[in-house]
Design a protein around this nucleic acid. Structure first.
Length: 598
RNA sequence: GGGAGCGUAGCUCAAUUGGUUAGAGCACCGGACUGUCGAUCCGGAGGUUGCGGGUUCGAUCCCCGUCGCUCUCGCCA
């Protein structure tokens, strides 16, 4: 490999006259028969190379160059005459007159070129990821990701953290997400699980006196992916001893302030806090998008004055948690009957029986939908909801959980569809004061909202036995523009408290010992008070580079079926491999081949 | 596991109500061309319309199944 003196993004007027050598990929070629141009691309940019017939070796070689050939060129950096400069290239003031060329690798015709890849389907991009990664956009993303993790490591180093690696081959604990399992060869019939997070290990590190731990770590959850979720993902994971929630939150504020400042030159101010109850009540979700209004308005008292059966029914629910709330969709009055009927069907997907709507026709006048039921309270309703003529009012009347869910989802849906979110905003939020546990109606038991190691608020401790639903936890989630970037908590550091919580969750002493005995022992052997947080690095990157596709920020992502289209993982393995692991497949029978009926 | 959308040349797309030889641009191959920068011009090659079945005189088009990709509900302590 001959010497490379410069990269393709750095030559400027000041380099004119120098003999330079570049290497990279042929981004495009323009063969005029006499003079030939190629745009040479490497990681750093694009530089135009000119081949004149006088340099016979170079010219002859250039004649055969095609897109994505890998070449090395040597030549003179020359200035371009005015009118011949290319303002689209940062190197457009100069070009390199090639005197020597070496084709480092001749390529097959590529299925697509990095130039046009923005218009290529994702399936093809993933199959030929190495070509996709040559796109300046992808280089930019991977570079940004590198910078972000570098900033994070520097930041935590400055704050006294040690980066410690934790195991990938772990003990399976059936709580939470489905585990990826790894069969053990040495212990027939037994399995490891890949970590869903290093939660317990980082707590043990605290018991081990490490005091401040951080790790940028891969986590695995065998659940169906989404646009912002992948079975294999990366967390910024940390834990600190001798701290309270405020300390962890302040540390993270400092981190995002630095990352956003250095990467985007955006200043992040103090991040406001909102209680879980307020978030649910005003936004119908524990991760509110506060970039726009359209908040949920409580209408219980007004609804009670109407004769509308749906409202009456909700308010009179035996469960006692019946609620009537509404949102006002600005300008939504333009929606057609078909569209609003469609909303009702959509709402059923979230457990609602339907969705009542009406339109504002004047200061105290409603029309269409359930207008006739609301006529007596029209003025009051319109005033309460801050509505004006031409708005659409949507109502949820049901158990409060369903009302909040439906209206919370509707709020987002309407904002997106009607373009009510002003771009370029960074709305940060801490959601705090979560309930520690939530009643699971299906399983008839209490479930942790975060995880079983989250410390309850000390002043709520006595409620653990009398009124579990009222116990708040020392947990905190950080939200950006309605997306959950991460969450953490102060942990339980006393084994008696941990056992009390396990008991509430229906995990008895023997089960607790079997699954978490090592943790209980560690808590008994001098575990300090501690707490931490984990942030989704992939989601942070999605925000920083402006994509809503998590696969864009991962070099080698998987598809919705968990497949890697490039390597074709997962795949069948040899019988010999299975035998070594003491495994035998028990696949479901193949569906019978249906022969045409007719 | 459920719902929705998509699948036609290497890539991005088109193809009338179900109609005769499935087209275009780019890429590829051959040729021309000494200042282009999405070069241009001339010519050429390239198709199991994802796969299997059905309906029909005739299917890219309609029906059933299946595979793949995307979004989504469930799921994600």
């Amino acid at each position: 490999m001959p010497v490379r003196t410069n990269n393709c993004g750095e030559l400027r007027d000041e380099h004119v006259g120098q003999t330079v050598s570049l290497a990279g990929w042929v981004n495009s070629y323009r063969d005029h028969g006499g003079v030939i141009f190629i745009d040479l691309r490497d990681r750093e940019g694009v530089t135009q190379i000119v081949f004149h017939p006088e340099h016979a070796q170079a010219h002859a070689a250039a004649d055969k160059l095609r897109n994505e050939d890998v070449v090395w060129v040597e030549g003179q950096c020359v200035g371009r005459e005015s009118g011949m400069a290319n303002p689209k290239l940062v190197t457009g003031q100069i070009e390199v007159q090639a005197t020597r060329v070496e084709v480092l690798n001749k390529t097959q015709a590529p299925p697509f070129t990095p130039d046009e890849a923005g218009r290529v389907g994702e399936e093809v991009r993933l199959k030929y990821r190495y070509i996709d990664l040559r796109r300046p956009r992808m280089v930019h993303i991977l570079k940004a990701r590198h910078r972000v993790t570098k900033i994070m490591r520097d930041y935590f180093d400055e704050h006294g953290f040690y980066e410690v690696e934790t195991p990938f081959l772990c003990k399976s604990t059936p709580e939470g997400a489905r585990d990826f399992l790894v069969p053990s060869r040495l212990q027939p019939g037994e399995f490891y699980a890949l970590p869903q997070s290093p939660q317990l290990f980082k707590q043990i590190l605290m018991a081990g006196g490490i005091e401040r731990y951080v790790q940028i770590v891969r986590c695995f959850r065998d659940e169906d992916p989404r646009a912002d979720r992948q079975a294999e993902f990366t967390q910024l994971d940390l834990e600190m001893s001798f701290v309270e929630a405020q300390d962890v939150m302040a540390l993270i504020e400092g981190l995002v302030r630095r990352v956003w400042s250095e990467v985007l030159e955006v200043e992040v101010g103090d991040i406001p806090r909102m209680s879980y109850n307020e978030a649910i009540s005003r936004f119908g979700t524990d991760r509110p998008d506060t970039r726009f209004g359209m908040e949920l308005i409580d209408l219980g008292d007004i609804a009670g004055k109407t004769d509308f059966g749906v409202f009456k029914g909700a308010l009179g629910l035996a469960s006692g948690d019946g609620t009537v709330k509404g949102i006002c969709v600005p300008g939504g009055g333009t929606m057609t009957r078909k569209e609003t009927d469609g909303l009702a069907d959509w709402a059923k997907g979230f457990g609602a029986k339907g969705l009542a709507v009406t339109k504002v026709a004047g200061p105290d006048k409603l029309e269409t939908g359930i207008a006739k039921f609301l006529a007596p309270v029209a003025g009051e309703l319109i005033e309460r909801m801050g509505a004006k003529q031409g708005d659409l009012l949507c109502f949820g009347a049901d158990r409060s959980k369903i009302v909040h869910r439906v209206l919370g989802e509707l709020r987002i849906k309407m904002a997106r569809e009607r373009d009510l979110i002003e771009e370029g905003q960074w709305r940060w939020l801490w959601v705090v004061d979560f309930p520690a546990v939530e009643w699971n109606e299906d399983q008839k038991r209490w479930d942790s909202l975060h995880h079983p190691f989250t410390a309850p608020c000390s002043e709520d401790m006595e409620l653990l036995e009398t009124d579990p639903a009222a116990v708040r936890s020392q947990a905190y989630d950080i939200i950006l523009n309605g997306s959950e970037l991460g969450g953490g908590s102060i942990r339980i550091h006393q084994s008696e408290v941990q056992m009390q919580v396990f008991k509430l969750l229906g995990i008895d002493e023997s089960a607790a010992r079997a699954k978490f005995g090592f943790l209980l022992d560690a808590l008994k052997h001098g575990a300090p008070p501690h707490g931490g947080i984990a942030l989704g690095l992939d989601r942070i990157m999605m925000h920083l580079v402006g994509t809503n596709n998590i696969r864009d920020v991962i070099a080698f992502p998987k598809t919705q079926n968990g497949a890697d289209l490039m390597t074709e993982a997962p795949s069948l393995v040899d019988d010999a491999q299975l035998r070594e692991l003491h495994l035998r497949l028990a696949l479901p029978p193949k569906p019978a081949v249906v022969v045409g009926t007719g």
